[in-house]
Structure formats: C-alpha cells, structure tokens
C-alpha cells in the first residue's frame, strides 16, 4: 500500500522534473551569446566551436536539441566543465559528499535540538525558559546565516581558537558550518514543535488521560508526543530540502568545498555547463526530499489514507 503510494508520488513528480529539465535546457540558451561558444570555452578556435556545435547537435532544431539533452541526462551524462575539462559527474561526486555530510549533521542537530527545545518550551508554557526558547528561535530564523557564520567564526575561531576559520571535511572543520546551517532550521522546528504540542495538549483525549490518573510524564510521552510530532516530520523534511540550498551561503562563508561552494565558483568562472548541472541536481534533490517527507508522513500517521 505504502509502496504503491510512493510509486504514485514518484509518477506525479515526473512532469515537475521534466519541467525543471526544460527550464535548465533553456537556461543555457537564454545566456547572451552562442551556446556552442559557451560550451566550447571562451578561448576556443572557430573549428572547435563548430565541432562542439555538431557534437551537441546545436545546429538542429530546439526540440531535437532537447531530445539529445534528455538522452544524455538519461545516460547520466552531464557534460564537461570547461574550466577543468573534467566530466561534471566526477566533480559533482566529490563535492556532493561534502554537502551531504554537512546537511545530514545539520538536520540531525535541527531535529534533536529543535524538538528538544520545543518540547521543553511547551511543557513549561509561560515560564522564562519558554520565553527564552521563543526569542531564541525567532532570532535563529531572522538572523542571516552569513552573519551567524561570521559571528561563530569570530567567537570560536578568532577569539577562542577552538575550531579552524575555514570549514573542511574533518570533524573540527564541520562543527561551525553545521551549526550555522542548522541555526534557522532549529528555530523553525522548535517553534513548530512547541505550537504542535500545545495544540495536542489542549485536546480532550489528553484531559481524559490525565483524569484517569495516568502519570503526567506518561501522558506526555504516549499521548501528546506521539501525536504532536507527526507534523514536525513534514516540517523537518522541508527544512532538509532548504538546508541543501542554504549550503550555498554557509559553504561560501566557511570556504567549505561542497556543491554550493562549487556553484558560486562556477558562476564566477562562467562555467555554464557546471551551473546548469548543479541547478538540476539541487532541484531534483529538493523534489525527491519533499516527496520522501510526504511519504514518511503518510507512513507514520495511520489516519492518512494514501490518497
């Protein structure tokens, strides 16, 4: 049943992904100048440009070109970077691991710290702790990640020298970037957890459970949390999708060699094939993560029919 639902959602995502492919196909054609020139590189000879034009079928009609583009996508070919003249898939693999590791740590932080703070705030509603969490989360949402990152660098790398200034794929090099990336998501998850918990705590079945004399902690764990955390899953899933793109700024702040960093480098170098491939990868990831969040939501909530 769930598998069928997953399959149906995947099929529903196809038009969107096809649209993304069309948009990315048009992206390079929207650039000022001749795409063959852009693909061939800025210092290519006329003969090389002609060769590229024939190789990519750029002398054919737009629909035919799009067919070729889709065909190469289906074979997993994303072209070559004209800055490094290496296959883009190779470049992506290397940088993808960095971004994925960073995002996974950040989303784990957001889940644990965000849900934890939200639960504490809701249980102690109206207390100073609650106020502190509320203010902290709205600040986390409002502060731009590049400022959070710079502040963390200043305090923990410049003043206290606990962590390196630049990020890297080592444990100490990942702490500051991961916390920076998680800051906004922690705020969002904490706020959402708090209000979801408060809503469930006002339900009749919670009052009934309390009236039956069940220990308040058991009520919280078995009756409140179980129901309140279901929507939190969706929010966290959405946050995960945004984390992957938030990585563009965080990776730039920390000079961390992930996909976002690669994107900004490629824009500066006008490496259009890489930009095109990265935009495609980012959006496909985003669509798939949102889809997974939906499916997960359906899987944990028995009330949802797979409609």
């Amino acid at each position: 049943m769930l598998l069928l639902y997953l399959l149906r959602r995947l099929v529903q995502a196809i038009p969107t992904l096809l649209g993304v492919a069309i948009l990315m196909f048009l992206f390079v054609r929207a650039l000022p100048g001749d795409p063959a020139r852009l693909y061939a590189g800025l210092d290519a000879t006329p003969a090389e440009v002609t060769a590229v034009r024939e190789r990519f079928g750029l002398d054919r009609s737009l629909p035919a070109q799009f067919g070729l583009y889709l065909g190469s996508l289906a074979r997993g070919e994303l072209g070559r970077s004209f800055r490094s003249d290496r296959p883009i898939t190779e470049l992506l693999e290397r940088h993808f691991r960095a971004t994925l590791t960073l995002s996974l740590i950040a989303i784990a932080l957001a889940m644990i710290v965000g849900v934890g703070l939200g639960v504490i705030a809701a249980v102690r509603r109206g207390s100073l702790t609650d106020l502190g969490v509320t203010i902290g989360s709205i600040l986390g949402i409002s502060a731009p990640s590049f400022f959070v990152g710079i502040l963390l660098i200043y305090v923990f790398a410049v003043q206290w020298r606990l962590f390196p200034v630049a990020g890297s794929l080592t444990w100490s090099g990942m702490v500051l970037p991961a916390v920076t990336l998680a800051a906004g998501a922690i705020g969002t998850v904490a706020r959402f957890t708090r209000s979801s918990l408060l809503e469930v705590m006002g339900e009749d079945f919670v009052r009934t459970a309390r009236a039956k004399g069940i220990h308040p902690r058991t009520v919280l764990r078995k009756h409140v949390l179980k129901n309140a955390l279901i929507p939190v899953i969706t929010i966290t899933g959405l946050q995960f999708g945004f984390l992957l793109s938030g990585a563009v700024i965080v990776e730039t702040v920390f000079n961390f060699p992930g996909l976002g960093w690669l994107l900004i480098q490629s824009i500066e170098a006008r490496d259009y094939p890489v930009i095109q491939a990265l935009m495609l990868v980012f959006s496909v990831q985003f669509v798939l993560i949102n889809l997974l969040a939906d499916v997960l939501y359906a899987a944990v909530d028995p009330r949802i029919s797979y409609g």
Binding site: P15, T16, L17, G19, V20, I22, L23, G241, F242, L244, S245, G246, V248, I249, M279, F282, S283, Q285, F286, V287
Partner: peptide, 13 residues
C-alpha cells in the same frame, strides 16, 4: 504545473 516547476528550486537557487 509551471508553478510546481518554479517551486522545485529550493530557496536561493
């Protein structure tokens, strides 16, 4: 559908 496509790009992208 076009709105869906535009929404398929996360955040800043």
């Amino acid at each position: 559908r076009l709105v869906d496509v535009l929404l398929a790009f996360p955040g800043l992208l």
